[in-house]
Design a protein around this nucleic acid. Structure first.
Length: 459
RNA sequence: GGCGCGAUGGCAGAGCGGUGAUGCAACGGACUGCAAAUCCGUGUACCCCGGUUCGACUCCGGGUCGUGCCUCCA
């Protein structure tokens, strides 16, 4: 079955045909580094991480570029509010972002360009757009001329007139056309700025992605991704800038992930339901649980983040690791099961892929011979790896210390030994008392023919 | 106002013009000293109204509700 993606440009599923079958190129809009990553920021990272893993399985070479936006008015505002330097904020936030995404099992992209390291590239592209008649200087600003681009609106499916009719903002007086947008804007002395042919200033929001994707992926490349909210204006404007500057198509396939809700409401600071990845980790929700929860809905659908959803994701991982724990060592990882690959090839259908993993787990639990069990364990592991899951040692999964502490491994082992003695003496009241006490501390015991194993129930 | 998206069993969430999704939860059974885990089994699911069709949860039209973008936002 061929790889297909839902292309926002055509609003339908299309077979994926790389421009160069030997080298797939993908760009994803990364974070603006002014604050801790929230779970909404994590969704595209995880969705495109799965896309990256799948593409690497299917093609010999993949270049995945995800930018860091480190020049932005939100960053400037944060610097003024906090009294810290812009450099300190962007450096620290970038580090936190890397830590948080690593905790979610996201692979680093091949290239992670920072906007401030590519100002000359942006200036060069703006000069090209001016030279080609697609941009003009006005009042210290450089603006993209939307009427100069007959294809403007092709991604978001709205005409220039519709956009103006729907606009809820006052039109800046220096704009020749109400739909025009900023490529370069002047900076006051206290704001970050770079010398340019139009004076000291800073780039507009959209130009960095056009300049950096060109630098690392070329003028035309395969896949561009991001959140659905970026369709307009960000990606629409990127298309306008890049196609007008280069005179050729920009991107083959546009992928956009759906929005994330929290307990049925839009996540926002004012509602107080703003959840960062760091907060979840601190509460003892493990990165792998967050990851599975995030992938349990199709990327195109809205995802409602709930405590119940997190609990179900944890249950599912317990089930997988329980199946793996009891299976013999596998000599080789083996290929990912065809059902898992097929599900992901069908527009990254992660829920179906996870269902296929569950079927493997059931088969593993039922399998009789060590050979079958080893084979099925290998398949489950390989399928999990394609989704970035199940890479831990099962014992680590079950015995990892909870965030809030709990009894130590030594203490647990000691009490299990006491219980074993009580059971041997058929003092079941004492044995059950020990088990109940441990349960209250979040430790679940499981007796089997080969002895007693335990796991922590929280997180 | 303009442009989109969605509505599936107690919950989450896939899917297809005619056959079991899957998991969680519940209930019954096997196993267990009792549990836990595991396995087996059970449950009138497809928002409403029209239409197309031999047949629609699945296609088309209308409606209702929810939600997103149009302004910084993943």
């Amino acid at each position: 079955m061929p790889l297909t993606f839902h292309n926002t440009l055509t609003r339908r599923n299309e077979p994926f045909e790389p421009i160069d079958p030997g080298h797939v190129r993908m760009y994803v809009c990364g974070p603006t580094v002014y604050d801790r990553a929230h779970i909404g920021n994590a969704r595209p990272v995880l969705v495109f991480d799965v896309a990256y893993r799948l593409l690497r399985l299917l093609y010999p070479k993949v270049t995945y570029v995800r930018n860091i936006t480190d020049v932005d008015d939100k960053i400037n505002a944060r610097a003024i509010d906090s009294g810290r330097s812009i450099a300190a904020i962007t450096e620290e936030t970038t580090r936190h972002f890397h830590e948080d995404m690593a905790a979610l099992g996201a692979l680093p992209p091949d290239v992670e360009p920072r906007a401030t390291a590519h100002i000359p590239h942006m200036i060069h592209m703006i000069e090209t757009l001016i030279a080609r008649g697609n941009a003009y200087e006005a009042g210290g600003h450089v603006l993209f001329s939307v009427p100069s681009d007959p294809n403007y609106g092709c991604l978001s499916g709205r005409s220039r007139d519709e956009m103006i009719a729907g606009a809820r903002v006052e039109v800046a007086p220096y704009k020749a056309d109400p739909a025009d947008f900023v490529l370069w804007k002047p900076s006051t002395p206290e704001l970050p700025g770079w010398e340019s042919p139009w004076g000291r200033g800073r780039p507009g929001w959209h130009i960095e992605c056009s300049a950096m994707s060109r630098e690392y992926l070329g003028e035309t490349f395969d896949i561009h991704g991001g959140g659905q909210d970026l369709v307009f204006p960000h990606h629409e404007n990127e298309i306008a800038q890049s196609t007008c500057a280069h005179g050729k198509p920009f991107v083959r396939i546009w992928l956009h992930n759906g929005w994330l809700m929290v307990e049925g409401e839009k996540m926002s600071k004012s509602l107080g339901n703003f959840i960062t990845v760091h907060d979840l980790l601190k509460q003892g929700v493990r990165g792998e649980t967050i990851r599975l929860c995030m992938l349990s809905a199709h990327y195109h659908q809205p995802l409602d983040w709930t405590a119940e959803g997190v609990r179900q994701a944890k249950q599912a991982l317990d089930r997988f690791y329980t199946a793996l724990r009891g299976a013999p060592e596998t000599p080789e990882p083996g290929p990912a099961p065809a059902e898992v690959v097929a599900a992901l090839e069908d527009d990254l259908n992660t829920p179906r892929a996870i269902a296929a993993l569950h079927e493997r787990a059931t088969a593993l639990n039922k399998a009789g011979t060590p050979q079958d069990r080893a084979r099925l364990k290998g398949e489950l592991l390989a399928g999990g790896a394609l989704l970035g899951l199940l890479s831990q040692d099962p014992d680590s999964w079950f015995k990892a210390a909870a965030a809030e502490g709990g009894p130590s491994v030594e203490e647990i082992e000691t009490r299990i030994a006491q219980r074993r003695a009580a059971r041997a003496a058929r003092d079941f009241a004492l044995a059950d008392g020990i088990r109940d006490a441990l349960l209250r501390e979040g430790i679940v015991l499981e007796d089997s023919a080969s002895g007693t194993t335990w796991k922590r129930s929280g997180g």
